[in-house]
């Protein structure tokens, strides 16, 4: 479930765009509308015609005289037979993307996104000697950053942000992660967060800058302090 947070911005964009495009298309069947039809499809036609200045009646989802006139005027202006019936050609001219592609190629294979290993490597680099809970906590903190908006919005973006993590800067995180780190990464991705939303962690025994101590501290696990 937590993996959802990982979904790169581009994917969110495409999903939103999907919603955006879909909200512009109507139910994918192409019902033929004529005098006496009613329902949401009629409202869609009415609002489109009203946007374009062909129709000034109420958008009530009832195909009456006013709608029929508007449809005829629209058809005349667009080189369609002015019969006042909304068939496939008129639907298309109205800009409704009615039909999906005839052939859809399913996605192949398994997604190679390997968030788990990437996260596990940083966990191992940053908290290799910490108790298990400390490892999960470091993983959760990194995931919290992705969701916060204060840091890059992808996992790789957060991890490879210059100077963000010592083990990345000095290359220690490039080793193969231990089994325990992999397990901790999975728990963090599955939603276990022993830090309740921390964005920072540091080792108080090492020299740290004063601003970091101004963050509200949530808890200490092993050698690390976790803070918002």
């Amino acid at each position: 479930m937590r993996l959802k947070k990982f979904v790169v911005f581009a994917v969110i964009l495409s999903v939103l765009f999907g919603i955006f495009i879909y909200s512009h298309s109507i139910s994918a069947q192409t019902p033929t509308l004529y005098w006496g039809s009613s329902g949401r499809d009629v409202s869609n036609v009415q609002s489109k015609l009203s946007d374009w200045g062909y129709y000034n009646g109420p958008i009530d989802g009832v195909f009456g005289a006013g709608t029929a006139d508007a449809v005829k005027r629209f058809q005349r202006n667009n080189g369609l037979g002015a019969d006042g019936v909304v068939g496939p050609a008129t639907w298309a001219a109205l800009g409704f993307n009615v039909r999906g592609p005839a052939t859809y190629q399913p996605s192949r294979g398994v997604s190679a996104r390997d968030d788990v290993t990437l996260l596990a490597r940083v966990i191992m680099g940053e908290a290799g000697d910490e108790p298990y809970l400390g490892k999960v906590a470091v993983g959760a903190t990194i995931l919290n950053r992705v969701a916060s908006g204060k840091f890059p919005t992808t996992l790789a973006g957060v991890i490879y942000e210059p100077n963000a993590f010592e083990s990345i800067t000095n290359g220690i995180a490039n080793q193969t992660p231990s089994q325990e780190s992999l397990k901790a990464a999975l728990d963090a991705i599955n939603g276990w967060d022993p830090t309740q939303g921390a964005l920072f962690f540091w080792n108080p025994a090492k020299p740290v800058s004063s601003w970091i101590w101004s963050r509200p501290i949530i808890t200490q696990i092993g050698a690390h302090v976790f803070a918002k």
């Binding site: 993590f165 020299p207 800058s209 970091i212």
Partner: peptide
């Protein structure tokens, strides 16, 4: 470059 988020 040798600092982590916790240091200076």
């Amino acid at each position: 470059a040798d600092r982590d988020l916790s240091k200076k």
